[in-house]
């Protein structure tokens, strides 16, 4: 493979500059490979000790030296699922509001606000979740849910405020601005002519939206959701504060749980035993593989879309 496009004359300083930039660019590949190798190597101890059952075992006990990733993986998946279930529909309607329904000036101001909110560090959301949202959850939302659905096992258990459900909701609030911004941009990319021809036929705003705009941008919207998914999977601080950190898989969403990232954040500093440390890094390795696959899938999907529609994100 050639490192660069050829150009007939190339003097010394130009060559050095090119080489320097190529080295920097190759560093990107090197970094990704290095992350993979380093994490794989450091988690070897745990994988050798527990084998494949590391991924399936629910036990996580630093005292007896028994480690299994199942509870953390479950927590990561369930919080991400809750977050996506809340954030995706809400982002869609907010993006719809911004792109189609409201006055352009309002759209611009509110849109900028949402972009700024996407920039707020996740630890702020975590703080808010722990001190403001969790008490609110335990006093208002959890009793109401239990009263409204008395037979559902997912709403049983202590009304502590912290737990898997709260973590999922905080995660949803955190990824909401991000997904909204991307979907709004997708909506705005749909050519005005296409929408206008819909209106010209006498369609209402809703009809144009769900039959033309959403269908036109569907692939990009799915791509945007995948990017949000990648963020939610690896999010650490917003989850760690409110998930409660317990290594048990229970049917109730009110109980405390743990995600891969929250386990890492919580236990890493205290992990003195090499096996404990290696198990934690193995958790990180699993998370890396999962997010890497999600990112690659999302990017390939978006690139396909780019080729067929000629627009990009």
């Amino acid at each position: 493979m050639k490192l660069w496009n050829s150009r007939s004359s190339l003097n010394g300083s130009d060559f050095v500059f090119r080489l320097l930039s190529a080295v920097c660019a190759l560093l990107v590949i090197a970094l990704i490979v290095a992350v993979f190798l380093q994490l794989a190597e450091s988690s070897m101890l745990a994988f050798r000790q527990f084998g494949f059952s590391f991924l399936l075992s629910q036990k996580w006990n630093p005292v007896t030296g028994n480690f299994g990733a199942a509870s953390s993986i479950y927590g990561t998946l369930i919080t991400t699922l809750i977050a996506m279930l809340i954030a995706v529909p809400l982002s869609l309607v907010i993006a719809l509001f911004l792109a189609e329904l409201t006055h352009p000036v309002v759209s611009k101001v509110v849109g900028t606000c949402i972009e700024l909110l996407a920039a707020i560090p996740s630890i702020i959301y975590g703080m808010w979740g722990l001190f403001v949202f969790a008490p609110f959850m335990s006093v208002y939302i959890q009793p109401w849910l239990q009263a409204a659905f008395p037979y559902l096992p997912i709403f049983k258990g202590p009304k502590m405020g912290i737990g898997v459900l709260s973590a999922g909701i905080i995660l949803a609030i955190m990824i909401l601005p991000f997904i909204t911004c991307v979907i709004r941009d997708v909506f705005k990319m749909v050519p005005a002519v296409v929408k206008e021809s819909g209106y010209g036929m006498g369609s209402t705003t809703w009809e144009v939206t769900h039959k033309i705009t959403v269908r036109y941008g569907l692939t990009s919207i799915v791509g945007a959701c995948f990017l949000g998914l990648g963020r939610a999977l690896g999010e650490t601080m917003a989850v760690t504060f409110v998930i409660g950190n317990s290594h048990r898989i229970t049917p109730s969403l009110f109980n405390a749980g743990s995600s891969i990232a929250s386990t890492l954040a919580n236990e890493f500093a205290e992990a003195a035993d090499p096996l404990h440390l290696s198990s934690l890094i193995a958790l990180g390795f699993v998370l890396f593989i999962v997010t890497f696959v999600v990112q690659v899938a999302a990017r390939l999907w978006l690139r396909q879309m780019q080729k067929s529609f000629g627009g990009g994100l």
């Binding site: 999977l233 690896g234 650490t236 998370l287 997010t291 990112q295």
Partner: peptide, 8 residues
């Protein structure tokens, strides 16, 4: 790489 979690 932009999408890889910072904790990793």
């Amino acid at each position: 790489m932009i999408g890889i979690p910072s904790i990793i």
